[in-house]
Simulated scan of single mutants.
Amino acid sequence: MKALIETIVTSLVDHPEDIVVSESEEDTKIVYHLTVNQDDVGKVIGKNGRIAKAIRTVVYASKTDAEKRIYLDIM
């Protein structure tokens, strides 16, 4: 899942070397924390959050564990 997030975001940003995806897992959920360069935050979020919503839709659709919910935080 980390590779999927990195692949999607890499094509959107000007500083792909600053992309960091970390994962924290709990009993009922998995949270992915996406951190990008401060200059690229607007590009990842997009106008009215459209790009962020599209990224989340792809990530949620590709989940493999049916019992755990997946969340994506963009910082």
Rank of each mutant, 00 (worst) to 15 (best):
K29F: 10
M75V: 12
E25C: 04
K29D: 12
E25P: 04
E6G: 06
I5D: 13
G42L: 05
D27P: 08
R69Q: 14
G42D: 09
V21L: 07
G49H: 06
T35G: 10
D18R: 05
K47H: 12
G46C: 02
S22D: 14
D73Q: 12
H33K: 11
V21W: 05
R50E: 14
G46A: 05
T7E: 13
V31F: 04
T7W: 05
R56D: 11
S62G: 02
V20R: 13
A66M: 10
I5M: 04
A66G: 01
D40Y: 00
E23M: 07
D14N: 14
K2L: 11
H33W: 02
E6K: 14
T35N: 14
I70P: 02
E23L: 06
E26G: 15
K29P: 02
T64H: 04
I70N: 01
G49E: 08
S11Y: 06
Q38G: 03
H33L: 07
L72W: 12
D40P: 09
V41D: 00
D39R: 10
S62M: 12
A54Q: 11
V31K: 11
T28Q: 08
N48W: 00
D65N: 14
E6W: 01
E26N: 14
V59Y: 10
I19A: 02
R56I: 09
N37L: 01
A52M: 03
I19W: 01
M75W: 00
L4A: 02
V58Q: 03
A52T: 04
T10I: 06
T35Q: 14
D73S: 05
H33C: 06
I45S: 03
R69H: 10
T28E: 12
M75N: 13
V9S: 06
P16L: 05
V59M: 09
M1N: 08
S62E: 09
E25A: 12
V41H: 04
I8T: 11
Q38Y: 11
D39N: 14
T28M: 02
I45D: 07
V13Q: 09
I51N: 11
S62D: 02
V9Y: 07
M1E: 09
I45F: 07
N48H: 11
V58W: 04
A66W: 10
L72H: 09
K43I: 09
D65T: 06
S11F: 02
